[in-house]
């Protein structure tokens, strides 16, 4: 079974460590403008929402690509862009409902999360529990458990 990248806005402090690590993996420099993970801040950072590609099973980006530049990595389930094949037509950026694939004018191709081959660097960098990499069939269970604790009126963190 593949693993999925899970993002929890409640735990995100907006520090951008994930974006720095992501950009390092993508372009070899700490440069959050090149990160494919993005943090959107609300209320001046009181709420921070991390977002990136969730690796759709029937990925719109992959379906619409006219040159088959996007393929599935069987090991991780990630939809990966081949920089050699991509022609920079940007149709995938229009097709993606989440805006998780974007064109990089410096390289002339689109860029998106590839799960770093199965060891996402953003997860390693995150100093809180905002990012996790877990079995794709259990991403909701942690939330359900927290909701159960809350419903039972027990203190946060009760096992």
């Amino acid at each position: 079974m593949h693993k999925a990248l899970v993002m929890e806005a409640d735990a995100c402090t907006g520090c951008h460590q994930c974006e720095m690590m992501c950009s390092y993996g993508k372009v070899g420099a700490f440069n959050i403008s090149k990160s494919v993970m993005d943090i959107t801040a609300f209320d001046g950072g009181a709420l921070n929402v991390p977002s990136t590609c969730t690796q759709c099973e029937g990925a719109w980006c992959m379906v619409v690509c006219p040159v088959q530049a996007i393929t599935v990595n069987p090991a991780t389930g990630a939809k990966e862009v081949s920089a050699e094949v991509c022609v920079g037509c940007k149709v995938c950026t229009i097709a993606c409902p989440f805006g998780a694939i974007n064109y990089d004018p410096d390289s002339g191709v689109v860029t998106k999360c590839d799960l770093c081959g199965g060891a996402p660097m953003c997860v390693e960098a995150c100093p809180t529990t905002a990012l996790a990499y877990m079995a794709e069939d259990s991403t909701g269970y942690e939330k359900m458990r927290r909701h159960a604790v809350m419903s039972a009126g027990l203190p946060e963190g009760t096992a």
């Binding site: 520090c15 951008h16 209320d43 950072g45 009181a46």
Partner: peptide
């Protein structure tokens, strides 16, 4: 207090909102 908040690159996040 609404939440804490981090400066760039900070794992401590001592700032207050």
């Amino acid at each position: 207090l609404v939440s804490n908040h981090a400066c760039f690159g900070c794992p401590i996040s001592c700032a207050r909102r």
